[in-house]
C-alpha cells in the first residue's frame, strides 16, 4: 500500500509545483502594460530617391530639433525637422570618405553623427551638418575589425561600442578604433547569456551599462559598466523564443533610451516598438502591422527626442512615424 501511495503523493506535489510555476510564469511571461499607450502624431515619406523619399530607411537619431535618417539603398543620410520637413542630405554610394554602403543604425554623441556603414565595415563619423570627419574600423574578423556593423554607442570619453553583426560580437574600441575588449565569440552564434545571434544595435546608459539588441535571439542583453553580464529579457528564459506577446520579440533591430532612462526596442517582425524599464519590466507597446496611420510594415528603428516624442522608422512603408506619450500634448 505504501508503495502505491508514494507515486500519488509525488504526482500531487508535481501538479501543485507545476501549477505554481505556470502561474508565476504567466505573470512573468505575459505581462500587462504598466503605462498608457503612445499616440500616433504624424508620418512622412514615400518610396523614391528624391528629398523626403526613401529606399529602405533603416536607422534614426534625433536631436532636440532635428531627425537624422539612414536611407540605406539611397546610400545617404536625410535630415528633417521634428515635423518632417526636409532640411538637407549627405552621403553617396561608394567606399570613400563621406560615401556610404547601406547605412544602418545611427547615434549622435558630442554633436557628431556616428553611422554604422554596413557594407564598408566601418563606423563613419559626420558633423551634424554632414561633413565627413573620420572612419573607424576595417573589414575582417580580428580585433578592431568589423564584418557588417549594425549599430554603435559612444561613451563620454569617446570610446565606441560597435555591434559587429556577422562576427556575432560587440566590440569596445577606443576613439581611434583600437581594440579594448569584446563580448561574444567571434563568428559563433550562441543563445546563452553573453552570447549573440546576429546582434543589431547597442545603447549606452548614463552609468555605462550597455544594452544590446540581440537580434535573432529575440532579446535584449544587459552588460555592466565593468563588462559583466547582468540580465536579459524577451520571451521565456530570453533565449531565442520569439512570439507576439507583450514583452516578447520577433527580432530586435534597434535599441534606444528615452529621457527618463526607459528602453525602447524595435520589434521588427511584430511591427511595433516596445518600452521597458531598465530592469526589463514591460511598460507599453505601440504599433501593429499595416500601411495606415500608426501601423508599421516592419518597425526597424526608433529614437526618442528630449521631449519624449518617439520617431520610428517604418521600413517596409518607406516612411518615418512620430508618436507622443499619452499624457503629453
Amino acid at each position: 500500500m505504501r508503495q502505491r501511495k508514494r507515486p500519488l503523493k509525488f504526482l500531487a506535489l508535481a501538479t501543485v509545483v507545476g501549477l505554481v510555476a505556470l502561474l508565476a510564469g504567466y505573470g512573468a511571461w505575459f505581462p500587462s502594460a504598466q503605462e498608457p499607450a503612445y499616440v500616433f502624431v504624424d508620418a512622412w515619406g514615400e518610396p523614391g530617391t528624391g528629398p523626403g523619399q526613401f529606399r529602405d530607411p533603416t536607422g534614426i537619431a534625433v536631436t532636440d530639433n532635428e531627425v537624422f535618417v539612414s536611407d540605406a539603398r539611397n546610400a545617404r543620410i536625410q535630415v528633417f525637422d521634428h515635423d518632417g520637413r526636409f532640411l538637407r542630405q549627405f552621403g553617396a554610394p561608394g567606399e570613400g570618405l563621406g560615401q556610404l554602403g547601406r547605412p544602418m543604425n545611427l547615434t549622435i554623441s558630442n554633436d557628431e553623427l556616428y553611422v554604422a556603414d554596413y557594407w564598408n565595415d566601418r563606423i563613419q563619423v559626420f558633423s551634424l551638418e554632414g561633413k565627413p570627419l573620420r572612419t573607424i574600423g576595417r573589414s575582417g574578423q580580428g580585433p578592431g575589425e568589423l564584418n557588417a556593423p549594425g549599430g554603435v554607442a559612444v561613451a563620454t570619453n569617446g570610446d565606441l561600442y560597435v555591434v559587429d553583426f556577422y562576427n556575432q560580437r560587440i566590440q569596445h574600441l577606443d576613439p581611434e578604433g583600437r581594440f579594448i575588449e569584446q563580448w561574444g565569440t567571434t563568428g559563433e552564434v550562441g543563445i546563452w547569456a553573453g552570447e549573440f545571434n546576429y546582434p543589431t544595435d547597442v545603447a549606452l546608459a548614463t552609468d555605462g551599462t550597455l544594452y544590446v539588441a540581440d537580434g535573432y535571439n529575440d532579446r535584449v542583453q544587459v552588460i555592466s559598466a565593468q563588462g559583466k553580464f547582468l540580465h536579459k529579457w524577451g520571451g521565456p528564459f530570453a533565449m531565442n523564443i520569439f512570439g507576439p506577446f507583450k514583452g516578447w520579440f520577433a527580432t530586435t533591430t534597434s535599441i534606444a533610451f528615452g529621457p527618463q532612462g526607459s528602453v525602447f526596442v524595435s520589434d521588427f517582425y511584430n511591427h511595433r516598438v516596445q518600452k521597458f524599464a531598465p530592469d526589463g519590466t514591460f511598460l507599453s507597446a505601440f504599433g501593429e502591422e499595416g500601411t495606415g496611420p500608426g501601423q508599421f510594415n516592419y518597425a526597424i528603428a526608433a529614437a526618442v527626442a528630449p521631449d519624449g516624442s518617439v520617431f520610428v522608422v517604418d521600413f517596409g512603408n518607406h516612411r518615418i512615424q512620430k508618436w507622443r506619450p499619452h499624457d503629453s500634448e
Binding site: D56, T58, A72, G101, R102, M104, Y118, W119, A148, G150, F165, Y166, Y198, T200, G215, T251, T253, F268, Y269, Y298, I300, F315
Partner: peptide, 12 residues
C-alpha cells in the same frame, strides 16, 4: 528574407 540586415549581407 524580410530582414534587411541579412538581405544586405547576401548582397554584400
Amino acid at each position: 528574407l524580410a530582414c534587411p540586415y541579412c538581405a544586405y549581407g547576401i548582397e554584400k
